[in-house]
Amino acid sequence: MTEVRAVVAMGEGKPVEVTTIHVPDPGPGEAVVDVQACGVCHTDLHYREGGINDEFPFLLGHEVAGRVAAVGEGVHNVEPGDFVVLNWRAVCGSCRACRRGRPQYCFDTHNADQPMTLADGTPLSPALGIGGFAEKTLVHSTQCTKVGRSGRPAVAGLLGCGVMAGIGAAVNTGQTGPGDSVAVIGCGGVGDGAVAGAAMTGARRIIAVDTDPKKLDWACQFGATHTVNASEADTVEAIRELTGGNGADVVIDAVGVPKTYEQAFYARDLAGTVVLVGVPDPTMRLDLPLLDVFARGGALKSSWYGDCLPERDFPMLTELYLQGRLPLEKFVTEEIALDGVEAAFEKMHRGDVLRSVVTF
């Protein structure tokens, strides 16, 4: 067992604390990872606010890059010294989704069996089964994805959640292709990931939609060809005007509220695709005329983690970044110390940052 410093949310809505936790030695199938960088994601803030569940205290952080420090019995996929990005959907290979050849929908993903604890022995709930705001963390070995050449840990770790969700929403779920028109509603980290993914596939027209001019400027850095300020223009009409009156082939809702979903639904072309990647809260309801759903055709999809396969997508995207073909470094607004997480949440809430990243 090892004592390390970590960021813990002790109760709903309370400021996070930097405190000492205990990380067990890895058991069968487990690995301990020396965390080199961990992005500050909106999901961590949702955990702190009680928006995920009430299993406090939470060990926050999940967008992790680091090196394997030790492995337990029966681990063969990684070894000490490997540079890895951690994933929160480590597929089991044997559930009904995996058996049908759809492992991106795995229903029984792996996590470590042993709990990490506070100094007094209180078990911690690691965010998304990872708990990366710590000098070391314990995970299931299949949550460790080797990505070959490392690059900057602060950049590589962002593939662990938000950026991958956005890129995958465009590439895997939306199946965007060369010549397509794409609209992305909401241009934070996930939305800009979708913009970057659409650009990577050769989309002809990429329309970024947001109410914040700064976020629209950010979207242009990732490949947006047009922008719509939703506080000044009707989103649906603006997207239609930019697509010859037809609507976009693919519309990605990276906000996840009924209003933006309805905009996405009506801003797509006939037989076009809507992708919901923004996460709604449990109280939200949607009211659409069923005849419109039938008459407009196409596909209405939700995107879990960008429908990614970490062992396939993380190495590929890291290589594209190292070749200069995917501008992942532009997602990193600032690098901060472990005690800067609470301030990073405030900056995120104000829209001042795309991503703050804790580095060790």
Rank of each mutant, 00 (worst) to 15 (best):
G11R: 10
K14C: 09
E17I: 15
T20V: 14
H22Q: 13
P28K: 12
A31Y: 00
V32I: 14
D34W: 01
D34S: 15
Q36H: 13
A37H: 01
C41I: 12
T43N: 09
D44L: 08
Y47R: 12
G50E: 04
G51E: 13
F56E: 06
F58N: 09
L59A: 12
L60N: 03
E63T: 13
E73A: 14
N77D: 14
V78W: 02
E79C: 12
G81L: 07
D82M: 02
V84G: 03
S94W: 07
C98F: 00
R99C: 06
R100P: 00
R102N: 11
C106I: 08
F107D: 14
D108W: 06
T109L: 10
T109S: 14
Q114T: 07
P115D: 07
T117N: 02
A119D: 14
T122R: 08
T122I: 09
S125P: 06
P126C: 05
A127S: 15
A127V: 13
L128A: 15
G132L: 10
L138S: 12
V139L: 06
H140K: 06
H140S: 14
S141A: 15
K146N: 08
G148S: 10
G151R: 09
P153M: 10
P153S: 11
A154Q: 09
A154E: 15
V155R: 00
G160Q: 09
V163H: 04
C187D: 08
G188D: 03
G188A: 05
V190A: 02
D192C: 15
A194V: 04
M200I: 06
T201H: 00
G202C: 01
A203V: 02
A203Y: 01
R204V: 01
V209I: 04
V209L: 01
K214W: 03
K214Q: 13
W218A: 10
W218P: 00
G223V: 02
G223C: 04
T225K: 03
H226M: 05
N229I: 07
N229P: 02
A230R: 13
E232F: 00
A233Q: 15
A238Q: 05
T243V: 07
T243N: 04
A248P: 01
D249Q: 13
V250H: 00
V255T: 14
G256P: 12
V257E: 03
K259N: 07
A267K: 07
L270I: 14
A271S: 12
G272R: 05
T273M: 09
V274E: 04
L276G: 11
V279A: 11
P280F: 08
P282E: 12
L286A: 10
L291F: 14
V293F: 11
R296Y: 08
G297N: 10
A299G: 08
L300W: 09
K301I: 11
S302E: 11
S303Y: 08
G306H: 10
G306F: 09
L320V: 01
R325W: 04
L326E: 05
P327G: 04
L328S: 01
F331N: 07
T333Y: 05
A337E: 15
L338R: 03
E342K: 06
E342V: 11
F345C: 13
K347F: 02
G351R: 01
D352S: 07
T359C: 13
T359F: 03
